[in-house]
């Protein structure tokens, strides 16, 4: 399973970086999205892929009913997903405004502040 996920993460990173280097604003934002998916899957995989029960102690015996899975990576990923959702929403609005103000979605033509 790790091997498959590793390949998936690699493809997501590669695709994300490729799209970020394109000149189109929409491709840039899709690239950013893919990149953050890659990072999330990376946390998931690195945190250990184990089948297990919920990490809740049995009150009487003070032990787990079955070997538990680590819940923390999922909590981290959930936080990261929410953040990347908000940021993507903002970036979409920013790009729309840029398109309306500058009349182009070509990154190469947005170089007015570079020099």
């Amino acid at each position: 399973m790790e091997a498959v996920l590793a390949i998936v993460i690699g493809v997501l990173y590669g695709g994300g970086l490729y799209l970020m280097m394109r000149r189109n604003l929409i491709q840039l934002i899709i690239g950013l999205g893919l990149l953050s998916h890659g990072a999330n899957l990376l946390i998931f995989t690195a945190g250990g892929l184990r089948k297990g029960g919920a990490p809740i102690l049995d009150e009487a015996t003070n032990t787990y009913a079955s070997a538990p899975a680590d819940p923390l990576p999922q909590a981290l990923i959930l936080t990261a997903i929410v953040i990347s959702f908000a940021v993507t929403a903002f970036a979409l609005v920013l790009f729309l405004r840029t398109y309306q103000t500058c009349g182009t979605d070509d990154v190469d033509e947005l170089k007015g502040t570079d020099t």
């Binding site: 990149l35 953050s36 990072a39 990376l42 946390i43 690195a46 945190g47 981290l76």
Partner: peptide
């Protein structure tokens, strides 16, 4: 994204 990936590996 880099920072997050680093955190994942470190964890």
């Amino acid at each position: 994204a880099l920072f997050l990936a680093g955190i994942g590996i470190l964890y």
